[in-house]
Nucleic acid binder design. Sequence first.
RNA 1: GCGGGAAUAGCUCAGUGGUAGAGCAUCAGCCUUCCAAGCUGAGGGCCGCGGGUUCGAUCCCCGUUUCCCGCUCCA
Length: 520
Amino acid sequence: MSNAELMKKVVSLCKRRGFVFQSSEIYGGLKSAYDYGPLGVELKRNLMSAWWREMVHGREDVVGLDASIVMHPRVWEASGHLAGFSDPLVDCKVCKERFRADKAPRVEKGAEVTLSFPDKGAAKVAEELVQKQFGVTLKRHDKDLQGAVAQRDYVCPNCGSPYLSDERQFNLMFKSSLGPTDPLGEVAAAIEGGALAGLEGRELRAKLEELTKPPAVYLRPETAQAMFVQFVNIQQSMSMKIPFGIAQMGKSFRNEITVEHFIFRSCEFEQMEMEFFCEPGTDDHWMDYWVAQRMNWWQKYANDKTKFRLRPHAPDELAHYAKGCFDIEYEYPWGYGELEGIANRTDYDLGKHAQYSGQKLDYFDPEAKKRFVPYVIEPAAGATRGVLVYLLDAYCEEELETPRGEKETRVVLKLHPELAPIKVGVFPLVKKDGMPEVARKVVAEFLAHGINAKYDEQHAIGKRYRRHDEIGTPWGLTIDHQSLEDGTLTIRDRDTMTQRRIPIDTVVAEIEGLLRAARK
RNA sequence: GCGGGAAUAGCUCAGUGGUAGAGCAUCAGCCUUCCAAGCUGAGGGCCGCGGGUUCGAUCCCCGUUUCCCGCUCCA
């Protein structure tokens, strides 16, 4: 099975069996938005619960937070999200390069410029394109084209062409407005009053920005900022001593330039983030610690642990706030891609928020009698990416021979029992002789213990086993004729398809034991 | 944003300028059975959406939306 096939099959299974649907499908779908169906929501919740148990309940030095998605707009000014991600982007119409206008090479407006290409062939193609699209004849000299006139005060950084698209604003954050007043009203009033007359380009944009600013709010592009903003409240109310962490899971929103690969990169996604506050100087130690912790955690739930790797960021790809960063990457069908980033954010965020809010965001160590702004190590994981990773990891096709000697394919999701949406399928061997009643009782018993169990009496028993294999149910329990005589049932293992017989009244304890064992 | 491909039943796909098919799945019944068994029957599609050409379009043309692949981009 090729990588492309694997991806297709997983996507198809997701829809067919109720894991993931395209959003608003009956209206033609919405780009990059997906809904988690009955099984998908269980898988995602199981994954996130496992994370929460590991990161918060499993240790004394991390506490949780569930902050509002919409925060004070100044938060995003302080964090740099507002300024850093609204730069004008331009496409070169000749070489198709996309670039930031403010970082492009400056030229004199109206000056003659030269276009350069990697080889003669590319230059010839470009020459024809310019002739055809812009009606301009350029002089070709080997790999260069001469005679173009600069329309703006910059040219394409790649080929030097002045043939460019309009400047487009790229907004990272989803913008909305808080309160019932319509910001368009302000704009309309300004136009009527003539306040916008004579303005164009960036000036016009700036003026419009200003008019619509007062009620403007943004959907958070990461969950991290609330944990910085509430640092003091949490530290004091919970009497936390450094080092300690604040963890949060939830939705974040980004206007990605390109969305791709199913749920891998979408504009609305779910994060699992933790900010670990420590004393400057101990940050490198904690960085190493969390990198190892997080890598182990991801591998624990995977069948193929070799598909994960650690990749340190090169100095030039580090974010503006980071001193160092490691990505935990997974080998997706299209290649390695990010799953979690562990960054040393230093005291950048607390410092910025202190500066913008005018509040003190530092920590006093009563033993050492010193005051400092903590450094922060941030393991930030993609929950929705995790769902994709484990689906890809779990998908298996096995060639089997039927009792009649025919070859067939068994599709199995070898999900970790902890993650499996349904823990046990409960089946009466046949739909009569009181077997359904016994099976229903077993289901009720599991549900009462908080274990997701599913009753199924449709079709032949073999078919039911296979249907549950396909959605990753780790154990199948069957009530048969013998059950009615001696009070036992069979328990079938998803991965080995082997069965053994145990007393019905111990089956809940048995499954609980298996779940506990799998968790270790 | 660019280039290429795709869109037909829940899924995988076939098909033709003359009002649509298969396999699997679903549902009902028979069979009463431990690994997708068999038999009988049923439901289900304005052939992604909008426009054009045509007597007539699922098919040809244009646009659009969504998905996939490759670039590009990417905290």
